[in-house]
């Protein structure tokens, strides 16, 4: 309880770092580095690309620290930058970039998941199936779903993705329905 009360907010840490306190940034980085890396990983990009985007995101945070104002949650600020880096990457590669996730036999999981039932479904981790199912979604639906899983509200997601709240609501609903349907089909047998 006392630890919760004494926990310094992300915004305060960022403001301290703005004044030159590097330890505050280390605490901030430790809080969010893995979750951000996971978000990028679930967005289905290659690991090298994930590292690159994660590094660019944090560098952007550091460079803009002198102009930082605690007008919103730091996490929203961080993920908004990461999302834009991700979108830039997709646009640069014309949205045709696909992660080469192969199974043990060297066949692409993504190509198999949409129309074929996995012959070794029991061996595949259900969670991994969910990740694979995410790739079948459009990028907008995928991002809306993943950002919601990161704990952001529809309003915050709408701000980060430059859309309105109703659109985000629709995307999230469609993504959930689509993912459940895929998983139900896979495990129907």
């Amino acid at each position: 309880m006392l630890g919760l009360l004494t926990k310094i907010s992300d915004e305060s840490l960022m403001l301290k770092y703005q004044q030159g306190d590097s330890r505050s940034f280390e605490k901030l980085y430790a809080r969010h580095k893995h979750s951000l890396f996971a978000y990028l990983y679930r967005s289905h990009v290659d690991l090298s690309v994930i590292e690159e985007i994660a590094q660019e995101t944090w560098v952007a945070i550091i460079d803009s620290a002198k102009n930082y104002r605690a007008a919103a949650k730091f996490k929203t600020y961080l993920y908004a930058i990461a999302h834009r880096k991700l979108v830039d990457f997709w646009r640069k590669n014309k949205f045709d970039y696909l992660v080469d996730r192969t199974d043990g036999n060297g066949e692409s999981i993504v190509e198999n998941i949409a129309d074929t039932r996995s012959p070794s479904a029991d061996a595949i981790d259900l969670s991994m199936d969910l990740l694979l199912a995410l790739e079948s979604l459009s990028k907008e639906q995928q991002q809306a779903f993943l950002l919601r899983e990161e704990g952001f509200s529809r309003r915050e997601i709408a701000v980060m993705t430059d859309t309105n709240e109703e659109t985000i609501k629709s995307r999230i609903r469609y993504a959930s329905t689509h993912l459940k349907r895929i998983l139900e089909v896979q495990y129907a047998d």
Partner: peptide, 26 residues
């Protein structure tokens, strides 16, 4: 289900680079 799919952790070299850059800027 999504949380059970353990994502890879941030690599150490990325952490070192970012923290070093943060100290320099600080």
């Amino acid at each position: 289900l999504l949380s059970k799919a353990e994502p890879p952790k941030s690599p150490q070299h990325v952490d070192d680079y970012i923290l070093a850059y943060a100290r320099t800027q600080a």
